[in-house]
Amino acid sequence: MSTSWQRRAVTRPKTVEAVTLVLLFAVTVLGVVVTRAVVSDTPPVWPGVALAAVACAALRLRRDRPLHVLATTTLCTMGQGALGYLLTPGLMGPLLVAQYSTSLHTSRRTTWNSALTAAAGMVVTGLLVPSFRNSPVLTTVNPAAWVLLSAALGAYVRVRREYAVARAEHADRQREEEARHRVIQERMRIARELHDVVAHHLTLADAQAGTAAHLSRTHPDQAFEIIARLPETTAAALRELKATVGLLRQDNDTADLAPAPGLQQLPDLVDACSTVGLVVSVTVEGQPLRLTPVLDLTAYRIIQEALTNVAKHAATRTAQVRLAYTPHYLTLTITNDTASDRPATTPATGGGFGLLGMRERAAAAGGTFHAGHRPQGGFEVACALPLNSNDESPAT
Rank of each mutant, 00 (worst) to 15 (best):
N336C: 05
Q185C: 08
G84C: 09
V141F: 06
R173P: 05
S340M: 07
V33M: 13
C56N: 07
A119S: 05
A209I: 14
A52Y: 03
A191M: 04
L307R: 00
V97M: 14
V29E: 04
T11V: 13
A71P: 00
V294E: 15
L21A: 15
V123P: 00
N336V: 00
L356S: 07
K312D: 06
A18H: 13
R342I: 07
V22P: 08
T35F: 10
W112G: 00
D221P: 03
T111E: 10
T125G: 04
V197A: 07
M122I: 01
G367P: 00
N388G: 06
A50M: 08
T349Y: 11
L295H: 08
A118P: 02
R229E: 12
A235E: 15
H201G: 05
H68W: 15
A243S: 10
G126W: 02
L230E: 06
A228K: 10
P47M: 12
I303F: 03
L247I: 03
Q222C: 10
S4D: 15
A235I: 09
Q222I: 11
A37S: 13
V165I: 13
V381G: 02
S107D: 13
L24H: 09
T333I: 11
H105C: 06
L269F: 07
Q250Y: 10
H201R: 04
S114Q: 01
Q250G: 14
S103C: 10
P130T: 05
G277L: 09
